[in-house]
Amino acid sequence: MTQPVFDSVVRKLRTVMSVSWKSVLEERREELAGLFAQYGDRAYGVWIQQFMAPVFEQLTAEGYIVKGGFNRNDSVENWGPPEERERCVWYVVKDGEGAPIGTMVLQVYHSHRAFHVPRAPRLFALEETERERIVAALSDASVRVRWDLPTERQPLPDDFRFAPGEAGWEYATDVSIGDCLRGEDDDGQTHSWSLDDALSHWGRYGWQLVSVVPAGGRIVAFFKRPLPAA
Protein backbone atom coordinates (compact mmCIF):
# COMPACT_ATOMS: atom_id res chain seq x y z
CA MET A 1 0.00 0.00 0.00
CA THR A 2 1.35 3.42 -0.93
CA GLN A 3 1.54 6.29 1.57
CA PRO A 4 -1.16 8.37 -0.20
CA VAL A 5 -3.55 5.40 0.04
CA PHE A 6 -2.82 4.94 3.75
CA ASP A 7 -3.28 8.69 4.26
CA SER A 8 -6.76 8.38 2.75
CA VAL A 9 -7.59 5.52 5.12
CA VAL A 10 -6.65 7.67 8.12
CA ARG A 11 -8.58 10.65 6.75
CA LYS A 12 -11.76 8.55 6.70
CA LEU A 13 -11.13 7.51 10.30
CA ARG A 14 -10.95 11.17 11.33
CA THR A 15 -14.63 11.45 10.52
CA VAL A 16 -15.41 8.58 12.89
CA MET A 17 -13.27 10.04 15.66
CA SER A 18 -14.61 13.58 15.21
CA VAL A 19 -17.90 12.29 16.62
CA SER A 20 -16.70 9.73 19.17
CA TRP A 21 -14.20 11.85 21.12
CA LYS A 22 -16.74 14.54 21.88
CA SER A 23 -19.66 12.24 22.62
CA VAL A 24 -17.64 10.18 25.12
CA LEU A 25 -16.31 13.36 26.72
CA GLU A 26 -19.77 14.86 27.14
CA GLU A 27 -21.44 11.66 28.32
CA ARG A 28 -18.75 10.62 30.81
CA ARG A 29 -17.17 13.91 31.84
CA GLU A 30 -18.18 13.63 35.50
CA GLU A 31 -16.95 10.04 35.75
CA LEU A 32 -13.66 10.89 34.04
CA ALA A 33 -13.15 13.90 36.30
CA GLY A 34 -13.61 11.60 39.29
CA LEU A 35 -11.04 9.18 37.87
CA PHE A 36 -8.61 12.05 37.40
CA ALA A 37 -9.06 13.14 41.02
CA GLN A 38 -8.12 9.62 42.13
CA TYR A 39 -5.63 8.42 39.54
CA GLY A 40 -4.44 11.47 37.62
CA ASP A 41 -3.55 11.08 33.96
CA ARG A 42 -4.88 7.52 33.82
CA ALA A 43 -8.29 9.09 33.28
CA TYR A 44 -7.18 10.26 29.84
CA GLY A 45 -6.13 6.71 28.99
CA VAL A 46 -9.66 5.51 29.81
CA TRP A 47 -11.13 8.27 27.66
CA ILE A 48 -8.82 7.41 24.75
CA GLN A 49 -9.72 3.72 24.89
CA GLN A 50 -13.42 4.55 24.81
CA PHE A 51 -13.49 7.09 22.00
CA MET A 52 -10.98 5.19 19.84
CA ALA A 53 -13.01 1.96 19.98
CA PRO A 54 -15.17 2.89 16.92
CA VAL A 55 -11.98 3.77 15.00
CA PHE A 56 -10.48 0.33 15.62
CA GLU A 57 -13.80 -1.33 14.77
CA GLN A 58 -13.82 0.49 11.42
CA LEU A 59 -10.25 -0.58 10.66
CA THR A 60 -11.02 -4.19 11.51
CA ALA A 61 -14.18 -4.14 9.38
CA GLU A 62 -12.08 -3.01 6.41
CA GLY A 63 -9.69 -5.94 6.84
CA TYR A 64 -6.80 -4.23 8.63
CA ILE A 65 -5.03 -5.47 11.74
CA VAL A 66 -4.31 -3.07 14.59
CA LYS A 67 -3.79 -3.41 18.32
CA GLY A 68 -6.31 -1.08 19.92
CA GLY A 69 -6.61 0.41 23.38
CA PHE A 70 -4.02 2.70 24.92
CA ASN A 71 -0.44 1.60 25.58
CA ARG A 72 1.59 4.29 27.33
CA ASN A 73 4.79 2.75 25.97
CA ASP A 74 3.57 3.43 22.44
CA SER A 75 3.32 7.15 23.05
CA VAL A 76 5.42 10.21 23.77
CA GLU A 77 4.61 13.40 25.68
CA ASN A 78 7.22 16.15 25.53
CA TRP A 79 5.45 19.35 24.61
CA GLY A 80 3.42 22.19 26.08
CA PRO A 81 2.58 23.73 29.46
CA PRO A 82 0.89 21.62 32.18
CA GLU A 83 -2.49 23.11 31.25
CA GLU A 84 -2.13 21.91 27.65
CA ARG A 85 0.24 18.98 27.32
CA GLU A 86 0.51 17.22 23.98
CA ARG A 87 0.75 13.44 23.83
CA CYS A 88 1.11 11.45 20.61
CA VAL A 89 -0.04 7.83 20.72
CA TRP A 90 0.77 5.59 17.78
CA TYR A 91 -0.80 2.47 16.33
CA VAL A 92 1.00 0.42 13.69
CA VAL A 93 -1.57 -0.71 11.12
CA LYS A 94 -1.07 -3.98 9.21
CA ASP A 95 -2.73 -5.47 6.17
CA GLY A 96 -4.71 -8.71 6.30
CA GLU A 97 -1.52 -10.75 6.01
CA GLY A 98 0.17 -9.00 8.93
CA ALA A 99 2.54 -6.75 6.97
CA PRO A 100 2.90 -3.19 8.37
CA ILE A 101 1.48 -0.56 6.00
CA GLY A 102 1.85 2.59 8.11
CA THR A 103 1.33 4.14 11.52
CA MET A 104 -1.76 5.99 12.70
CA VAL A 105 -0.93 8.69 15.25
CA LEU A 106 -3.41 10.09 17.74
CA GLN A 107 -2.51 13.60 18.91
CA VAL A 108 -4.18 14.42 22.24
CA TYR A 109 -4.03 17.63 24.26
CA HIS A 110 -4.79 17.42 27.97
CA SER A 111 -4.30 19.21 31.27
CA HIS A 112 -2.35 18.03 34.29
CA ARG A 113 -4.18 20.45 36.59
CA ALA A 114 -7.65 18.96 36.21
CA PHE A 115 -9.51 16.73 33.79
CA HIS A 116 -9.73 19.08 30.84
CA VAL A 117 -9.31 18.62 27.09
CA PRO A 118 -8.14 22.01 25.75
CA ARG A 119 -8.57 21.17 22.07
CA ALA A 120 -9.86 18.46 19.80
CA PRO A 121 -7.64 15.40 19.24
CA ARG A 122 -6.33 14.69 15.76
CA LEU A 123 -5.40 11.63 13.73
CA PHE A 124 -2.62 11.65 11.16
CA ALA A 125 -0.58 9.10 9.24
CA LEU A 126 3.12 8.29 9.28
CA GLU A 127 5.04 6.15 6.83
CA GLU A 128 7.39 4.93 9.58
CA THR A 129 6.43 1.72 11.41
CA GLU A 130 9.45 1.10 13.68
CA ARG A 131 9.50 2.67 17.13
CA GLU A 132 12.77 4.60 16.81
CA ARG A 133 11.78 6.06 13.46
CA ILE A 134 8.30 6.94 14.74
CA VAL A 135 9.76 8.80 17.73
CA ALA A 136 12.26 10.58 15.47
CA ALA A 137 9.47 11.67 13.13
CA LEU A 138 7.33 12.97 15.99
CA SER A 139 10.30 14.93 17.32
CA ASP A 140 10.02 17.09 14.20
CA ALA A 141 7.45 19.77 15.06
CA SER A 142 6.50 20.20 11.41
CA VAL A 143 5.12 16.64 11.44
CA ARG A 144 2.79 17.35 14.38
CA VAL A 145 1.94 21.04 14.05
CA ARG A 146 -0.39 21.94 11.18
CA TRP A 147 -0.81 25.69 10.77
CA ASP A 148 -3.19 25.13 7.85
CA LEU A 149 -5.82 23.25 9.86
CA PRO A 150 -8.46 24.90 12.07
CA THR A 151 -8.12 24.33 15.81
CA GLU A 152 -11.24 23.39 17.76
CA ARG A 153 -10.76 24.57 21.34
CA GLN A 154 -12.82 23.82 24.43
CA PRO A 155 -13.77 26.58 26.91
CA LEU A 156 -11.30 27.05 29.75
CA PRO A 157 -12.44 26.02 33.25
CA ASP A 158 -13.00 29.00 35.53
CA ASP A 159 -10.03 28.13 37.74
CA PHE A 160 -7.76 28.15 34.67
CA ARG A 161 -8.56 31.77 33.91
CA PHE A 162 -6.43 34.68 35.05
CA ALA A 163 -7.73 36.75 37.93
CA PRO A 164 -8.60 40.43 37.32
CA GLY A 165 -5.41 42.42 36.93
CA GLU A 166 -3.36 39.39 35.92
CA ALA A 167 -2.14 38.93 32.37
CA GLY A 168 -1.23 35.92 30.33
CA TRP A 169 1.06 35.94 27.32
CA GLU A 170 0.99 34.68 23.78
CA TYR A 171 4.18 33.97 21.87
CA ALA A 172 5.30 33.90 18.26
CA THR A 173 8.52 33.28 16.38
CA ASP A 174 10.12 34.71 13.26
CA VAL A 175 12.58 32.37 11.56
CA SER A 176 13.52 34.88 8.87
CA ILE A 177 14.70 37.75 11.05
CA GLY A 178 18.31 36.92 10.15
CA ASP A 179 17.55 37.85 6.55
CA CYS A 180 17.52 41.46 7.75
CA LEU A 181 21.12 41.32 8.98
CA ARG A 182 22.98 42.59 5.96
CA GLY A 183 26.69 42.29 5.49
CA GLU A 184 28.99 45.20 4.79
CA ASP A 185 28.25 47.32 1.73
CA ASP A 186 30.87 48.49 -0.73
CA ASP A 187 31.60 51.45 1.52
CA GLY A 188 32.48 49.13 4.41
CA GLN A 189 29.44 50.07 6.48
CA THR A 190 26.87 47.73 7.96
CA HIS A 191 23.29 49.00 7.76
CA SER A 192 20.47 47.90 10.04
CA TRP A 193 17.49 49.68 8.51
CA SER A 194 15.86 46.46 7.32
CA LEU A 195 16.17 44.95 10.81
CA ASP A 196 14.75 48.14 12.33
CA ASP A 197 11.83 47.92 9.94
CA ALA A 198 11.17 44.24 10.71
CA LEU A 199 11.26 44.76 14.48
CA SER A 200 9.07 47.85 14.21
CA HIS A 201 6.58 45.83 12.19
CA TRP A 202 6.23 43.36 15.07
CA GLY A 203 6.18 46.14 17.66
CA ARG A 204 3.40 47.95 15.83
CA TYR A 205 1.08 45.11 16.78
CA GLY A 206 2.16 44.90 20.40
CA TRP A 207 4.83 42.20 20.07
CA GLN A 208 7.94 42.53 22.24
CA LEU A 209 11.24 40.91 21.28
CA VAL A 210 12.25 38.44 24.01
CA SER A 211 15.25 36.62 22.61
CA VAL A 212 17.12 35.56 19.48
CA VAL A 213 18.61 32.09 19.13
CA PRO A 214 20.70 30.55 16.32
CA ALA A 215 19.19 27.30 15.06
CA GLY A 216 19.85 25.24 11.96
CA GLY A 217 21.92 27.92 10.31
CA ARG A 218 19.24 30.57 10.84
CA ILE A 219 18.38 33.08 13.55
CA VAL A 220 15.06 32.59 15.33
CA ALA A 221 13.48 35.60 17.04
CA PHE A 222 11.03 35.06 19.91
CA PHE A 223 8.29 37.61 20.59
CA LYS A 224 5.58 37.92 23.23
CA ARG A 225 2.62 40.18 23.96
CA PRO A 226 -0.14 40.22 26.60
CA LEU A 227 -3.22 38.18 25.82
CA PRO A 228 -6.24 40.33 24.97
CA ALA A 229 -8.81 40.74 27.71
CA ALA A 230 -11.47 38.02 27.69
Results as ranks from 00 to 15, higher is better:
5 V>Y: 00
12 K>I: 01
12 K>E: 15
17 M>P: 08
18 S>F: 13
19 V>T: 15
23 S>L: 09
24 V>A: 03
25 L>S: 07
27 E>A: 14
28 R>Q: 08
28 R>S: 03
29 R>M: 07
32 L>A: 02
35 L>D: 13
39 Y>V: 10
41 D>T: 13
49 Q>D: 10
52 M>H: 04
55 V>I: 06
56 F>P: 01
58 Q>I: 03
63 G>F: 14
66 V>S: 02
70 F>N: 03
73 N>W: 12
79 W>D: 15
80 G>W: 07
80 G>F: 02
81 P>C: 06
83 E>G: 08
85 R>A: 07
88 C>A: 13
88 C>K: 09
92 V>M: 01
94 K>G: 01
96 G>P: 04
103 T>G: 04
106 L>H: 08
112 H>S: 02
117 V>E: 00
120 A>H: 12
121 P>W: 03
121 P>G: 06
124 F>L: 03
125 A>F: 05
127 E>W: 03
127 E>Q: 13
127 E>S: 08
141 A>V: 15
143 V>E: 12
143 V>H: 11
144 R>N: 10
145 V>Q: 12
148 D>A: 13
149 L>D: 10
150 P>Q: 11
153 R>M: 13
154 Q>K: 01
155 P>E: 01
157 P>N: 07
160 F>L: 14
161 R>P: 02
161 R>L: 15
166 E>P: 05
170 E>I: 11
172 A>R: 00
179 D>W: 07
181 L>N: 04
185 D>N: 12
190 T>L: 06
191 H>K: 14
193 W>P: 00
194 S>N: 07
204 R>P: 01
206 G>V: 11
214 P>S: 04
214 P>Y: 02
216 G>V: 03
216 G>P: 07
217 G>C: 07
221 A>T: 04
222 F>T: 09
228 P>L: 07
229 A>N: 07
230 A>S: 09
